[in-house]
Design a protein around this nucleic acid. Structure first.
Lengths: 178, 178
DNA sequence: TCTGGTTCTGCAACTAGTTGCAGAAGATTC
DNA sequence: GAATCTTCTGCAACTAGTTGCAGAACCAGA
C-alpha cells in the first residue's frame, strides 16, 4: 500500500491537481513508484474520503473541472507513521532475467537485440539522472537534511541504472563470444 | 504476462508438481520472479487447458492427489517466441526509496532501524548467491552455453544485491552524521 | 459560431497478484 | 484403529495495477 503515501508525499512537496500529479509521476517520484492517471484519480478520491487530503475550494465544482488538492494534518500524520513502518523488501521482478533463464533452455535466438535495446534505454535513464544530480546537488555546496535525503534517493536511482548498464554490457560481451 | 513462461521454463528444466514448483519459486527462479502457490496452481490449470503442458498420467485422478506436469511441444514453442519478444523494462518499485523521499518531507524518525534491517537482509541474500556461484560455477572450468547464460542470470542477482548493500551502507553513513 | 484539437477528469472492465481457508491423502503416534 | 499432523491441491474473495473509452471545459482558427 505505497501509492497513497507516494501521493501524500508529492502533494506535500506541492499541492497539485490529478493531471499534474500524473505528470510528476512520469518523472521524479515515478522513477521508483510509477502509477497511471487512473490509479491516481481513484486514490485521490479515497484519500479525500478518508480526510487525508482536501480539494482546494473551486469557483464552480463541476465534473471535468480541474481540482487542486492539499494535504490535511491527518494525512501528514498518516505519512509520518508510514515512514517509520517496517516492511520487507519485495524480491525484484525482472522479466529480462527470466528471458535469459528461459533462453538457457530453448536457445537465445533474438535475445542479443533485446539486450542492446535495454542497454540503450538504461544508459539514457542514467544520463538523465546524472544531469539532474549535477543540476540539483552540486558537490561544492552543503545541503540541508531534506536535500541530503533527496540526494540519497537520487543516488539510489543512479546506482540502480549503473547496475543495469554494467550487467547488460557484460552480458552482451559474453554472448558475443559464442 | 511472465508467470506462465516462468513456469514453462521451470518445467522444462524438470517436470514437477504444483508444490515442487512452489518450492523452486521460493528460490532459484523466484529470485527474480516470485509467485505464490495460488498463482502457480491457477496458472498450471490455464497452461494445461491451453495445451502447453500436460499432467503425467496418474493411477487415480482424484482431487487432492499430487500431479506432475510436463511441457508439450506447443508449450516449448510458445516459450521460444516469448524469449525473442521485445518488452520495455518496467520501472522498479522500491518502497524504501519512497519512504526516504517521504522522510525528506515529514522527518526521518525511525528510518535508520529499517535501513539496517534491510542491509542485513540484502547482505544475507548476497552471501547466499555467492555460495551458489562458487558451488555451481567454479572459475576454473569451461561452461556450456546454457550454463554461461544461467551464470549471467546469477551474476545479475549478485550485482543487484551488491547494489543494495552498498547503497544502504552509504545511506546509513550519511544519516549517521546528522 | 461552429468545428476540431487539447486538457482534465473519470467510469468500467480487465489482468495480475495476495490472503485466508479448507478438504483429501498419507504418515505418525498413542 | 482412532486421533492428529503434514503434504498437496485448490476455491473464493480480496487488493493493486492496466487499458480502453468518454464526457466536460478550454482554446484555437476559419
Amino acid at each position: 500500500m505505497s501509492l497513497p503515501h507516494a501521493i501524500l508525499t508529492a502533494l506535500l512537496e506541492k499541492p497539485s491537481s490529478g493531471l499534474e500529479l500524473t505528470r510528476r509521476f512520469d518523472k521524479s517520484i515515478g522513477y521508483f513508484w510509477s502509477a497511471t492517471h487512473q490509479q491516481i484519480y481513484r486514490e485521490l478520491g479515497k484519500l479525500e474520503q478518508a480526510g487525508h487530503i482536501r480539494a482546494l475550494p473551486a469557483p464552480v465544482p463541476v465534473r471535468g473541472q480541474r481540482k487542486e488538492y492539499e494535504v490535511l494534518p491527518a494525512g501528514r500524520a498518516e505519512l509520518g507513521t508510514w515512514v517509520a513502518r517496517s516492511e520487507d523488501p519485495k524480491p525484484m521482478r525482472a522479466a529480462l532475467l527470466l528471458r535469459m533463464r528461459a533462453a538457457a533452455v530453448v536457445g537465445a535466438t533474438g535475445l542479443r537485440a533485446e539486450l542492446s535495446r535495454h542497454l540503450a534505454l538504461h544508459q539514457e535513464q542514467l544520463d538523465e539522472y546524472l544531469a539532474i544530480e549535477s543540476r540539483d546537488f552540486p558537490a561544492d555546496r552543503r545541503h540541508s537534511e531534506p536535500d541530503r535525503l533527496r540526494h540519497l534517493v537520487l543516488r539510489g536511482g543512479i546506482e540502480m541504472e549503473r547496475f543495469w548498464v554494467e550487467w547488460l554490457t557484460g552480458a552482451l560481451a559474453e554472448l558475443g563470444t559464442e
